[in-house]
Amino acid sequence: MAARAIWKGELKLGKHNVGVKFFSAIEDRSVRFHLLHEKDQAPVEQHIVRKDTGKDVPREDMRKAFAVGANTAVILQPEELEELVPPESRDIELLRFVPADAIGDQWYERAYYLGPDGHTEDYFAFGAALSRKEVIGIARWVMRKKRYLGAISVVDGYLVMTTMRRAEQVLSFSGVEPAKSATPQANELKLAEQLVKSIEADFDPQQWQNEYRERLLELIEAKARGEKIKPVPVKKKRPEGSLADSLKASIAAAKEKKVA
């Protein structure tokens, strides 16, 4: 079944407009629960109350306040907040293109597949051009009354827009120079490299399942049928040793595994 587009926009590149539809690339698979009152299993309602008196506050009396100190805040009136809402637009502004490694993964927030809206040829031509140039685009747009920043890239020939965090949120490092005592020796580096190579693999995400989610759903199904299931905990162990010895032993263990 085809998914529903959450938004439509136009990529602006020079004189070209490429119409695109946004589809979430992420499917939320969280198991959702209702909060119930334990005694009578009736659903709970959430009220907004004054903290000091516990009295309900009607919606029209609720305000948002921005904290400016430990104990000081400024109320922003609804009409003031309304003025801050960016104007609606279908434009997706492409600010610049950069090599893919110019952006670290910590910038990435949430991915959307873009599908063609209208001119399919322009869509695939833009994707082909992005792949040829081996770059990603930095984009800015307004969607559902909010400003977004994103990186547009090509995955398997399709355009993907990944929303980005803001510059103020991302922390970066420089000048990390460990003390002499913490600097690894040449032989340790060599052994560590061997160990990395011994458990080298291709990224295969299918290999991992969210076992907790599976166990939770099994539990729910069993309970819905009126049964009970037994938990099966998995034991893990962790040996200790000196760094070089541990590296050697690890390589040996990894080799054995590969042979087996």
Binding site: L35, V44, E45, Q46, H47, I48, V49, R50, K51, D52, G54, V57, D61, M62, R63, K64, A65, F66, A67, A73, I75, L76
Partner: peptide
Amino acid sequence: MKLVDTEGHALGRQY
């Protein structure tokens, strides 16, 4: 932002 009433009293959620 924090939730307050028109007079600036702190608000919270109550089930």
